[in-house]
Design a protein around this nucleic acid. Structure first.
Length: 581
DNA sequence: GCCGTTTTCGGCCCGACTGTTTTCAGTCG
C-alpha cells in the first residue's frame, strides 16, 4: 500500500475492516454501522478525501456520516496509513477469525463459537471440522447447518463476493420475468434491487410478483430452467441459485402492498433507512407491506402513493442511493433524467476497418434501424496495433466511402471520425491535417495505464487541448472487475474539457461504463457536456447505449447535458469543424 | 459513532427464513 497519500478507496477499506473487527468483538451495532457509512461516504466522494481534509478542520466533519471522531481517523489514515483503533483491533482479533465471516450463513456469533469451541482457524479448517461431523456438536448448530456450511464452502462462495455485470444479469432476469408473467393468476412481475437502480453490477436479483397464484408462482420459480439449487422456499419468499452462480430472490406480494414492496426491495438500503427516518418523525412506519399509522395501512399500492405519504414526490430508482435525492425531492429540484429516447445518435463505434466485426454499411444500416439520426464511425488510429488501427491514408479512403454511403442512406448521416490514441506524452496518433478532415475526433488512452497521477493528468490535459479534439473516450480506462482506472485528477480534466469545449464520454460497453455515475455527476456539476457512446464493435452492440443511459441517469445527468441528445445541426456546432479556438 | 422541526442524550428500519429451539437466536437483505 502506498503511504502516506491514502486514496479514498484505502480509507474506505480500512473503515470496513474496522467495522468487521468491531462486529467480531461484539460491539454496538450502531457503532459498526457508523464505520460502514463513513466508508461509503468516503468511497463515493467525487474528489480525493485528502483534498477535503486540506480545506481545514471542519471540512471532513461536514461530510454526511463523518463526525469529529471519524474525521480524526481519516486524518490519521492520511498521515500514517492506518489508525490506532484499527491497529488495536487487528491485534486483539484472533488470526483466521475474519476469514470465517466470508462463509455465507456464518455471522460473528457462530464464527466466534467455531473458533473458540472447535479451534477452527480457517475456511479450510472449517471444512475439515464439518466433514468430521464436529460442527453439529455445537449448541445452535445441527446436521443441516453443517451440511449448509460444507455446501457454501464447496460452491466457492467464500472465495469472495462476486458481482455480475448488470447487462449479463439481464440475460437471466428477462427470461425469468417472462416465465413468471406466464403463470396464470399473476398480475405483475418486476425486478427490483440494484438491478432496477441501474447499478453497473448486481450481487443478486430480486423479483417481485403479485397476484392470486402464490403457490404456483413459488413452484414455477423454484423449478425454472437454469435453477441449480433452491436455497429457501417459504410462502411469500423463495431464493435460488442459478447455474451461472447468480442468486435470485422471489417475493410474492399482495396487490395493496405491491408499491410498498417494490419500493422497499428496490432500495438502496441507505435510501430506505433515510426515508424511514422521515416516516418515523411523522409518526408513520414503512415496511414492505405499506405505510402504516399505528395498525392502519395508509399507502402501499404504488410507489407514488408510498412516497406521497411521507410528503415526497416519486424518485427515480437510479437516484435512490442517499446521495442527496431526498433533499432534492423535498425541495422540488429532482433532475429530469436523460432517457434512451432522448438520444439522437451515437458518437463512437468501430467497423471492420479496424477491430469491428461488421462493416461500414452494416453498422450504418443497424443504426438507421434503431432510429438514429447520426452515427460517428470512429475506427482506431495506427498505434493501437492489436486493433488493426488505420493510418492517415486509410481514414481518407474511409471518408470517401462514407460520403458515397451517405448519398444513398435515408435519414441517417454517417459522420467520419476516429478514435485517436493518446500517446505517452499527450500528443495524438494522427497528424493535424488528417484530424482536421474528420467530423468527429474521439481521443482515448490504450496504453501506459500506470503513470503517476500528475503525469497521467498532464498527458490527458495536453491531449484535450488539441484544437481538433471533440470527445475524451472512456476517460479512466477502467474495466469493471478487472482493471482499475488510471490515476487521474478528474477535476483538472473536467476544467480542461470545459476550457476547450471537449465532451467527456460515458462509454456504454457493459464492462466499461466509464465515466461512472459519480464521475459523470461531478463532470456535469462542473459544467462539462457528456456524450453517451456505444463503442459498438458489432451492429448488435449499438444497443449498448441503454447501459450507458442508465449509468448517466445514476449520475443525475439530464438531456441538456448530453451532446448526442442534440439534433445533428446543433451537435455540429459543438464539433471542432465549426468550433473556434 | 452519528445526529438534531423529538437537538447534546437517546435513539438509530424492519421483517422473513432457517434451524434448532420449546419460544428464539442468528443471519440476511
Amino acid at each position: 500500500m502506498r503511504r502516506p497519500g491514502a486514496t479514498n478507496a484505502d480509507v474506505a477499506r480500512l473503515f470496513l475492516e474496522a467495522a468487521e473487527l468491531l462486529e467480531l468483538a461484539g460491539e454496538n451495532p450502531f457503532r459498526i454501522r457508523a464505520y460502514q457509512q463513513g466508508a461509503r461516504t468516503v468511497e463515493e466522494l467525487d474528489e480525493p478525501v485528502a483534498r477535503v481534509a486540506a480545506r481545514g478542520a471542519k471540512a471532513l466533519d461536514a461530510l454526511p456520516g463523518i463526525g469529529e471522531d471519524l474525521a480524526e481517523k481519516i486524518r490519521q489514515v492520511l498521515a500514517t496509513g492506518s489508525f490506532p483503533l484499527l491497529a488495536r483491533l487487528r491485534k486483539q482479533t484472533p488470526k483466521g477469525l475474519p476469514e470465517l465471516l466470508k462463509v455465507p450463513g456464518l455471522g460473528p456469533k457462530r464464527a466466534r463459537l467455531l473458533y473458540d469451541e472447535l479451534g477452527v482457524r480457517s475456511v479450510a479448517g472449517l471444512a475439515r471440522a464439518a466433514k468430521a461431523g464436529r460442527v453439529r456438536t455445537l449448541p445452535g448448530f445441527g446436521a443441516k447447518t453443517e451440511a449448509a456450511i460444507l455446501a457454501a464452502i464447496g460452491g466457492g462462495a467464500a472465495a469472495g463476493e462476486k458481482r455480475m455485470l448488470r447487462a449479463r444479469a439481464a440475460s437471466y432476469a428477462e427470461p425469468l420475468v417472462e416465465l413468471l408473467r406466464a403463470v396464470p393468476g399473476v398480475d405483475r412481475v418486476e425486478v427490483a434491487g440494484s438491478f432496477r437502480r441501474g447499478r453497473e453490477t448486481v450481487g443478486d436479483l430480486d423479483i417481485l410478483v403479485t397476484g392470486r397464484a402464490r403457490a404456483a408462482v413459488v413452484e414455477a420459480f423454484t423449478s425454472a430452467p437454469g435453477v441449480a439449487r433452491v436455497l429457501a422456499r417459504g410462502a411469500t419468499r423463495a431464493a435460488v441459485r442459478l447455474g451461472s452462480g447468480l442468486q435470485v430472490d422471489l417475493r410474492v406480494l399482495a396487490p395493496e402492498s405491491f408499491g410498498a414492496g417494490l419500493y422497499y426491495f428496490t432500495g438502496s438500503k441507505a435510501h430506505n433507512v433515510a426515508v424511514r427516518g422521515i416516516a418515523r418523525a411523522a409518526g408513520l412506519k414503512i415496511n414492505e407491506y405499506g405505510v402504516f399509522r399505528g395498525k392502519t395501512l395508509v399507502a402501499g399500492r404504488t410507489e407514488e402513493e408510498v412516497l406521497a405519504a411521507v410528503g415526497l414526490p416519486w424518485i427515480p430508482p437510479e437516484l435512490r442511493e442517499d446521495r442527496g435525492e431526498i433533499a432534492a425531492a423535498r425541495e422540488g429540484r429532482l433532475p429530469d433524467l436523460v432517457t434512451l429516447r432522448d438520444l439522437r445518435g451515437d458518437l463512437q463505434c468501430h467497423t471492420t476497418d479496424s477491430d469491428g466485426r461488421d462493416d461500414l454499411e452494416a453498422m450504418a444500416r443497424a443504426a438507421e434501424a434503431l432510429g438514429h439520426q447520426y452515427l460517428a464511425v470512429t475506427d482506431h488510429s495506427p498505434s493501437v496495433r492489436v486493433t488493426g488501427g488505420m493510418d492517415a491514408a486509410g481514414f481518407r479512403a474511409q471518408r470517401r466511402r462514407i460520403d458515397k454511403l451517405n448519398a444513398k442512406l435515408g435519414k441517417l448521416t454517417v459522420l467520419a471520425g476516429a478514435e485517436v490514441d493518446i500517446l505517452a506524452d499527450g500528443r495524438l496518433d494522427l497528424d493535424d491535417a488528417t484530424l482536421a478532415g474528420l467530423d468527429v475526433v474521439v481521443i482515448s488512452i490504450h496504453s501506459r495505464f500506470n503513470l503517476p497521477e500528475a503525469e497521467q493528468t498532464r498527458r490527458v490535459v495536453r491531449a484535450i487541448s488539441h484544437p481538433a479534439v471533440d470527445i475524451l473516450g472512456h476517460p479512466t480506462g477502467r474495466i469493471i472487475g478487472r482493471r482499475a482506472g488510471i490515476a487521474l485528477d478528474l477535476d483538472a480534466v473536467a476544467r480542461a474539457a470545459g476550457d476547450h469545449g471537449v465532451m467527456l464520454e460515458v462509454n456504454a460497453q457493459p464492462e466499461r461504463l466509464d465515466l461512472d455515475d459519480i464521475a459523470a455527476r461531478a463532470a456535469v456539476e462542473r459544467g462539462v457536456r457528456l456524450v453517451i457512446g456505444s463503442d459498438a464493435h458489432a451492429a448488435a452492440e449499438l444497443g449498448f447505449l441503454r447501459w450507458g443511459v442508465d449509468q448517466a441517469r445514476r449520475g443525475w445527468v439530464e438531456k441538456q447535458d448530453v451532446g448526442n441528445a442534440l439534433p445533428l445541426a446543433r451537435l455540429r456546432k459543438l464539433l471542432h469543424g465549426s468550433r473556434k479556438h
